[in-house]
Design a binder for these strands. Structure first.
Lengths: 127, 127
DNA sequence: CAACGCCTTCGAGCGCGCTCCAGGTCAACC
DNA sequence: GGTTGACCTGGAGCGCGCTCGAAGGCGTTG
């Protein structure tokens, strides 16, 4: 039920170092619980939150913004509007980013087509 | 017709420092030409290449890979297959990345809907 | 009992991609 | 002639996000 740091790392695709770093840096809502010998024990709830953190990170949210979001959640009820605004602002940035990357990719695809076409032409001439 | 570094920077959305850095680091096909006094003069062809570099960078290609691509182009005719492979490999990475980000965004959207729904509910109760 | 393996903390180090600074040259303008 | 300003070079510095190393604790295993 409660995982060691190595197990948690394997489960969420991060390194143990990164998990400790996230905790130290305030990205988790609360410090992870400890066993009698002082080892971290990750609960399902910890893993669920970490999954959300990885989603935010994977979509390009900076560490410092994840920390702000974690702080809001940590503060408890009453700031849902702030959380929503933070997530919506992030959503807009991600959408803008996706659009930009997609547009650049289209141009790169065009270049690829040029190269591919030229290679086909030269193959025809050679044949 | 040939722009100063400040004009080129404005035209392509990079800083003058970045333009010098790209040149030093081998991201350009050839060093930019100079005026009599030693100042860089950017031609349309320079700007065209720099646009391609920004497209590659904006889609997440590392500097070192852009340098490899530039080296292929610099080497001249005969390596079109290598260039094509490099661009196609990049294209695959970008597509995978877009898919991943899109999937994470969907999950974040779901979270946003939860918050928004909860806020609507509480507004109804309050009303 | 010793060794091994997994964990702990603290702090330093690193790779990336710029970004900035010092010190100098040159051209133009007052 | 002097000042301003854009540019030059070489090299240092920085923000981000980890990543690693040293030194040590605890608990099982041969």
């Amino acid at each position: 039920m409660a995982l060691s740091i190595a197990e948690a790392a394997a489960a969420c695709g991060l390194s143990a170092d990164t998990l400790r770093y996230y905790e130290r840096d305030g990205l988790l809502v609360r410090p992870v619980g400890r066993s009698a010998s002082g080892h971290r024990r990750y609960t399902d709830s910890d893993l669920g939150w970490i999954e959300m953190v990885t989603r935010l990170r994977a979509t390009g949210m900076p560490i410092r913004d994840v920390r702000r979001y974690a702080a809001l959640v940590r503060a408890g009820d009453g700031n849902e509007v702030a959380r929503l605004e933070l997530l919506q602002a992030h959503r807009e940035r991600v959408l803008a980013d996706l659009a930009e990357v997609t547009a650049h990719l289209a141009a790169i695809d065009h270049k690829i087509d040029l190269y591919a076409g030229r290679l086909v032409d030269s193959a025809e001439l050679t044949a």
